[in-house]
Design a protein around this nucleic acid. Sequence first.
DNA 1: CCCGTTTGTTAGAGACGTCTAACAAAGATA
DNA 2: TATCTTTGTTAGACGTCTCTAACAAACGGG
Lengths: 162, 162
Amino acid sequence: MSSTDDRPTPSLEDYLEAIAVLKKRDGKATVTALSKSVGVKKPSVGWALRKLSDAGLVIHERYGDVELTPDGARLADEVCRRHKALFDFLTDILMVDSAVAEHDACAMEHALSRESIHRLEKFISLVMQCYPGRPDWAAVFNRYVDEGQDARVIEGVLDRES
Amino acid sequence: MSSTDDRPTPSLEDYLEAIAVLKKRDGKATVTALSKSVGVKKPSVGWALRKLSDAGLVIHERYGDVELTPDGARLADEVCRRHKALFDFLTDILMVDSAVAEHDACAMEHALSRESIHRLEKFISLVMQCYPGRPDWAAVFNRYVDEGQDARVIEGVLDRES
DNA sequence: CCCGTTTGTTAGAGACGTCTAACAAAGATA
DNA sequence: TATCTTTGTTAGACGTCTCTAACAAACGGG
């Protein structure tokens, strides 16, 4: 029954993700950059940083840059992974327009349980590696998911079943 | 760029969906039933009904049952469709546990653009009808989406490309 | 027909997340 | 160093959505 775990609110996850992205892209995350990136005014960033700070997810001293704590970094990575999986699925598999996919991924990334995200990632990589599916897709995919096998093993399975 | 259109808030969409489901299941939607179904207290339902009523989506006279206006019914149907597509994808294709899928679908159903939902529905029906994919899945799927062809046509495409 | 139960509503409070307006600190430029 | 600009913070308001407590209408059995 533990599907969504305990996460920061969607809003706070957005800030967390933006901090991670900015740090990777620019080397640092400032209030102004966050404000632009998240699409809110600066006082809202201040509010969020206070919240994240209280939750032990960021370090932010007055007028300083924003740093992620280890917990914050871990959570930010998770959000980014969810975002990427959804975006990849939408663009690579459903072939949705990339701006729309970005938008949808942003909105959905807060709602995916660990179980679903895991299976979605597996699904994407399976489809990517192994376009030409064959009869018992369900069995193949299930095996892939359960055992985390790579493409070669799948190929064996497919051969066996085709 | 019109991807998400203008929708009621996620919260109001939940109420709208619940009304539609209850009307289908029980023949009517009462405040108490909505309260249980949505998982909020009755005054919250009252608040939502006021909002939906102001938006012209439901009719609700004091102490009476809730009725959907045509606009409300249309929107409710859209939400249900998004819910179903996500749920079907999670269960039938990703094979996520159905309780988890239900939970995730509920949470994501507010975030899918028309474009994505359309392609997702097509994808599901394609996979369902035509499990054994073949080489150029992308081309096949694109054609299917663009032209809304049924399984027989797809089979032709597949034959041509295998 | 009266009374208890169920159902629905009103009033008011409170968390979340945003905004504007005004101010304070830092940094650049002369 | 005095000032201008950029950046960040504070204070306070607002809209959404929820809750609890208290009350009012409707309903059903005696």
